[in-house]
Design a protein around this nucleic acid. Structure first.
Lengths: 130, 130
DNA sequence: CATACTGTTATAGTTAACTATAACACTAGC
DNA sequence: GCTAGTGTTATAGTTAACTATAACAGTATG
């Protein structure tokens, strides 16, 4: 696994975001178990409590259910909840700031497209949401 | 002044970013004095040490010069330094993550443009905001 | 000198994030 | 019951961010 932490955000939130990304990408489907707290802690060389804190956030958001002795599982409807909530958050809070930055830096569409090129080879429609 | 802090980033870094934005926007020109540490601390209801920390970051970056007893001043060449450095940082670190998020959320160009509309009357008609 | 601005340092306390270590609680399989 | 997986809680310590309060240091004005 690739684990580099962004110092502009606490680890437990980055962990939360990674799981969210996995759910949105379909890597984790509804009903699937999340990688266990201890496993993640070991793989990422992070304290189990830090992982738990990230996971608890997901529980609080109603995206994940915890079953003692079994594991943490993606709830039904988690993906559509995320598509709705994260979209709103992104468009309402992040995107405006991003646009302001782009304009401030005088970045042109070509530069942005070029920087993005190579990140994703194809533009297939793997996920069609309703 | 409008001062609301983003909890996803320490205040001193947000202060640093605001000054950077002011320099890029031309609100602060080279040679201009920054609003004084104490003034900002009072206006934003923040500890003077927090403001100083943000300002010191700018000094460390060579964007600003501190003159004891006089104030902090925007260095010559600060703006072009910023245009170069911030562009690189944005395109290299932030933009890829942003593109990944946009794709994950399945956001379409129209939605992004619409969300951005009204933020800045770039070159079009005048806005009728009171 | 005194006054009134500037930046800067010192001291000390709170909170959040992260860590190490250990134990407790539950489930499944043998 | 034992073992080996799960999640969870307890205890305690470090560091970074922020705070309050005060003092020190320099510049300009009168």
């Amino acid at each position: 696994m690739d684990h580099e932490w962004n110092d502009s955000q606490p680890i437990y939130r980055q962990l939360r975001d990674r799981v969210v990304a996995m759910i949105l990408d379909g890597v984790l489907k509804e009903g699937d178990p999340l990688p266990s707290v201890r496993t993640v802690a070991a793989d990422y060389r992070v304290n189990p409590l830090t992982v738990l804190k990230g996971y608890q956030q997901l529980v609080d958001e109603g995206l994940v259910e915890s079953r003692r002795g079994l594991g943490m599982f993606v709830n039904a409807g988690a993906r559509s909840m995320l598509l709705q909530g994260e979209r709103q958050k992104f468009l309402g809070e992040e995107w405006p700031r991003i646009c302001a930055t782009i304009q401030r830096l005088g970045l042109k569409p070509e530069e942005l497209l070029e920087a993005d090129a190579g990140r994703q080879p194809s533009s297939d429609s793997a996920k069609e949401e309703g």
